[in-house]
């Protein structure tokens, strides 16, 4: 990390880009004036707030990250249809349950991403992380095979996240 990030021109490049795009989206325009204003804000705000920044693990493989994003998007649609069927179906057959998933990733950002992914994908909501960040507790709406669910979470979501952040 730069020892003195306050004086760099782009202390937070990703956030600058995001700010630029969000400003233009919010005004729903591509007018020249707004582009200038967005560029000004995208330059000024990160310089003002960069001293508040925590060091976070960076994305090592952007293409894999894009693939992961598309995978999650597809799983959200599948999850919605599955949950809709479960909700409208008979309630007596449902077997809810808590499970604990051991975590291999240790930093905050990947764990947050994993927990959010788990919440958005089929039949599972993440409830809590143990204090030493080794276990993720999950509630499953219809728990059929505990070991299979743990393996699928680890292989489908945790392994790519581990690779993306290179940890």
């Amino acid at each position: 990390m730069d020892p003195n990030p306050r004086f760099r021109l782009f202390p937070m490049p990703v956030q600058s880009g995001l700010l630029f795009v969000v400003w233009l989206l919010m005004n729903n325009t591509l007018a020249v004036g707004h582009i200038f204003l967005a560029a000004l804000l995208a330059l000024a705000i990160p310089i003002a707030v960069s001293s508040l920044q925590h060091p976070q693990p960076t994305v090592h493989k952007p293409l894999l990250a894009l693939r992961y994003f598309l995978l999650v998007l597809m799983d959200i649609v599948i999850a919605n249809i599955q949950v809709a069927i479960l909700i409208l179906g008979p309630l007596k057959k449902m077997q809810p349950g808590f499970i604990a998933v051991p975590l291999d990733i240790k930093q905050n950002l990947p764990i947050t991403l994993l927990a959010s992914t788990v919440s958005l994908t089929p039949g599972t909501v993440s409830c809590d992380v143990s204090e030493d960040q080794c276990w993720l507790y999950i509630h499953a709406l219809n728990l059929v095979d505990e070991q299979e669910l743990i393996n699928s979470i680890k292989n489908r979501y945790e392994a790519p996240l581990k690779e993306i952040f290179g940890c």
Partner: peptide, 15 residues
């Protein structure tokens, strides 16, 4: 199911 996991989650215990 999984009452151990439920109790562990309530206490935020490790394992």
């Amino acid at each position: 199911q999984g009452s151990e996991a439920h109790q562990a989650a309530t206490a935020r215990k490790s394992t």
